[in-house]
């Protein structure tokens, strides 16, 4: 028990002294998750609007499939991206394996179902009269979609934050396609995994605290949004 308290004390010290390794790994994690989330948002917001505003056969089935993919295991996405980008894979020629770029791509695949599904749900929550009124006032389909998205902005932002939470907290995908290379693809989760297996509990705990801090900020932001 005493060892644990010592480790905890050391972890806090690493944090408050802005330990170079902790900062470097945390910075990379945040950068990769933020990049993948931004790209996913750029895909999901228009795609979600397109699905919401279009009438087509199989729409309900498509939404059900998207919702099912919310809980797809990160290792399954990791395996898929690995096969896609490994040297013998169809995109192996791009030579992206074990780079932050492929980690971003993997996270885009991972986060897309959550962000897309929640965007569609957010748009469904907006009174249909809003888009209808816009159309009746001469808005094009695109303009009507924009104003509907504006009315769903808090719920859509929640979808983006949820996506960010999933991206920063995943470990399977980052290990499989990132390779956990020190100073290059090592992230908070892969570092925690490695340091724990090495027995460096202090560093693992410090990194874990950063992750919890990120989760806390996400939760506080979500709560603030939901109170609006």
């Amino acid at each position: 028990m005493e060892e644990l308290w010592q480790a905890l004390g050391k972890a806090v010290e690493l944090l408050v002294t802005f330990d170079a390794e902790v900062m470097e790994v945390s910075g990379r994690s945040l950068a990769i998750a933020a990049t993948s989330c931004s790209i996913t948002a750029l895909i999901c917001l228009p795609l979600g609007s397109l699905i919401h505003f279009s009438r087509f056969r199989g729409k309900r089935l498509l939404i059900s499939i998207i919702q099912t993919l919310y809980s797809i295991p990160t290792v399954a996405v990791g395996l898929f991206v690995f096969v896609l980008f490994s040297s013998s894979g169809p995109l192996g020629g791009l030579d992206l394996m074990f780079t932050p770029a492929v980690m971003v791509i993997g996270q885009v695949f991972l986060v897309t179902p959550v962000m897309l599904g929640l965007t569609i749900a957010a748009l469904n929550g907006v009174d249909k009269a809003i888009s209808e009124t816009a159309v009746s006032l001469g808005a094009s389909r695109f303009q009507a979609a924009v104003i509907t998205l504006k009315h769903a902005r808090y719920a859509v932002l929640t979808a983006v934050i949820m996506g960010f939470g999933r991206a920063i907290a995943e470990v399977g995908l980052a290990l499989m396609v990132g390779g956990n290379i020190k100073g290059f693809t090592r992230t908070l989760t892969t570092a925690i995994s490695l340091e724990t297996s090495k027995g460096d509990i202090e560093l693992a705990l410090a990194l874990g605290m950063v992750l919890i801090l990120v989760a806390l900020v996400i939760n506080l932001t979500l709560n603030r949004l939901q109170q609006r």
């Binding site: 816009a134 159309v135 009746s136 006032l137 001469g138 104003i147």
Partner: peptide
């Protein structure tokens, strides 16, 4: 549609 405007019974404001 841009030559018309429609005011619905239940006022809808953005």
């Amino acid at each position: 549609r841009r030559r018309m405007s429609f005011v619905q019974q239940k006022p809808v404001v953005f």
